[in-house]
Design a protein around this nucleic acid. Structure first.
Lengths: 124, 124
DNA sequence: TGAATATATGAACAGGTATTCATATATTCA
DNA sequence: TGAATATATGAATACCTGTTCATATATTCA
């Protein structure tokens, strides 16, 4: 106990097998909050309903009702999901009377979508 | 009830405001299973621990113990997450004695990671 | 103003998920 | 063979998430 092995690193119950590797990678790691934020971003893409919404909006601007009809889902379900997408700035909206039109926030969103589509074309 | 409005579409409780838009987009929609699969893929990227693991593996091949030490997490937690990543083919492994070395499955994974990193550099 | 309607939202609920704990498996080495 | 050790895994738990239901808000129009 007194002569704790140099290779031991706190919470890990096993011995570090490759200290150099771990130290090297540690230096290039990003801050935790960046991984957290990235996780949030990807998580937003991690639901079929939200993917369908974003895919649809990549084709055309649509109101909530249009989207609900297209996906044959309730207005409420769509509205809740649109809020999620708004919160992470993946979609934006404009109001015209009582109708709210949604569209993708920028091309960057579509770039990520395409990446996913390419991957499945690659895999499925 | 008998003269159901032409604009009404099943499960959506509101009237379709823009039938042409909905019909147009509907034609270009992908199959449900593709959205499901894409959702699974993005969901795999949607957790900070898994992102850290993939980021680390983009720098160097590492064994389970290395990763646990790097992230200061339990071997079990890492092992469970590695299984998730294995199941969707984002990482691969090779065994050398009792040590199992993990690495990214292909460059495509890193491309998606980079996309996420670019997005946060853009946003944060 | 009041009825109709498009959208938003809070609460509730069912199903999913990340981690821990205990333990199994597999491999090395004495 | 048996002790040590790297990894995998099943069960349990606490938390998160997607949808529904009921209802609120906002806007139009008669």
């Amino acid at each position: 106990m007194a002569d704790k092995k140099e290779n031991d690193i706190e919470l890990c119950e096993c011995n570090v097998v490759h200290k150099d590797t771990v130290d090297g990678v540690k230096k290039s790691m990003l801050e935790d909050r960046k991984f957290d934020y990235m996780g949030e971003l990807f998580k937003s893409f991690g639901d079929p309903t939200r993917l369908k919404i974003m895919f649809a909006l990549s084709k055309d601007e649509m109101c909530v009702c249009d989207i609900a009809a297209l996906l044959e889902m309730s207005q409420s379900a769509i509205s809740h999901q649109l809020r999620v997408l708004r919160n992470v700035r993946l979609v934006k909206n404009r109001k015209e009377g009582k109708i709210v039109y949604y569209s993708l926030d920028d091309d960057h969103v579509f770039t990520m979508l395409k990446q996913g589509i390419e991957h499945i074309d690659h895999t499925m």
